[in-house]
Design a protein around this nucleic acid. Structure first.
Lengths: 225, 225
DNA sequence: TCACGAGTGTTATAGCCTCTAACTGTTATA
DNA sequence: TATAACAGTTAGAGGCTATAACACTCGTGA
């Protein structure tokens, strides 16, 4: 095997390892280059969010992102191996944010479990209405050939569900590990999602309903049952 | 204005009028050609369903459809002005089918409103599990630049909701036009959708739950409250 | 009967996309 | 300061939607 200088047509292994690490919070970047690199990746992500905000997830185009950044298309492949990996990154980030919205809202309001559940649900709805494209990312339809990597998402989703389970268990006075509590959490989650999904999809439009009021009604009955 | 024979680069106006008529049940085709044309359009639609069944809605490609039919891409533009119009056609057809599944299921079982509601909900779930890609078509979020034409879909959606409203009103002993009945219908719809959406999205996987049983539990509590 | 026009198909092409290859310039560091 | 990794470029393959300009097939009407 001769020692030939490889022309490195693609980014080096180390660069891409850093680029597409499975988790979002690796040890903080140290060198100046790493900082700039992280910054560029962040700029890409922000441009991506903006792009799916108007145009939908399917409108996400590396080429277009590059253009808004004043680059050519192939340049982005230095930062992401491909379109799918970018989506995965957005997805993981958004899952985390979603979980945090609930966690922060419930923690801040404190008080009874019921009170916390109300605050959490309202916060989630507010967040979803503010970032419909991100909600889509989580619960909308998967892209063309894109399949979300199980590990990255399932774990975070499960964590978010656990928070809900704990509060519901406390609210109902059952063990947080009980089947009843877990089932209640899933059904509550489904109910909340159903409302948000239809609302964001515009399916409540033109029905002549006070959607805010309807949401509150649903919440009450949810926590009463 | 000289009388020049136009080379008809695009399909004639009449052909496309027939091709993309807003409603699915125009007066039945008469001539042999019209019958063949309708048959071809149907073949296109079936190929389209098959394509989104594996690959998702974003994988819908006129080119690929043409290939499976032994045609070249541009040939399909004789039958649909474009990809969006094909999607619209699928959507309208599926909305209608969705409404009919509920209508037929409730009508067939008869009996009390509650009994009919149970049957209707179960039928919808069965249909959704059997045709997840069609469910997506209805309640997934719109494609890239695609915006569903309001008129074609809203009307059918409203009709389907009306059936649910009537049954719920009877079940609860309120007027079918009352705000309470309409709100109950919307919330029921949202609840059902939330469950189906998460189930189809695979979000219930690996949670160690008996999903069928969970659905029945949800139904009971839904009709009790 | 037979010409003609509508309908149905083709190839060629423009312009978008993702992604790879090959190349050049820059910069951090050994 | 020399060098290797990094960050960008252009060129191009192959997919897509869609249009333009053809060619062919039929059913129908004079």
């Amino acid at each position: 095997m001769v020692h030939v200088k490889e022309p490195s047509a693609t980014p080096s292994a180390s660069a891409l390892a850093r680029a597409s690490g499975p988790d979002g919070q690796s040890p903080p970047p140290v060198s100046r280059r790493d900082r700039q690199r992280a910054q560029t990746r962040d700029e890409i992500k922000r441009a991506a969010y903006a792009q799916i905000a108007d145009g939908g997830l399917g409108a996400l185009s590396l080429n277009a992102i590059a253009r808004t950044m004043g680059l050519t298309g192939p340049a982005l492949y230095r930062y992401y191996p491909g379109r799918d990996e970018l989506i995965t990154d957005l997805l993981a980030e958004t899952y985390q944010e979603w979980g945090e919205v609930f966690r922060v809202a419930t923690a801040r309001v404190g008080g009874t479990p019921k009170r916390q559940l109300l605050a959490g649900a309202r916060a989630l709805r507010a967040w979803a209405l503010e970032h419909p494209e991100r909600y889509d990312l989580l619960y909308g339809r998967p892209l063309p050939g894109y399949a979300a990597p199980e590990d990255a998402t399932r774990e975070t989703a499960r964590a978010a569900l656990d928070g809900l389970t704990a509060l519901l268990a406390a609210h109902r006075g059952v063990g947080p590990e009980s089947l009843a509590a877990r089932e209640a959490a899933v059904l509550t989650w489904a109910r909340l999602h159903g409302f948000l999904s239809l609302e964001l999809g515009g399916h409540f439009d033109d029905l002549g309903l006070d959607v805010d009021r309807l949401f509150e009604r649903d919440l009450r009955s949810l926590l009463a049952g």
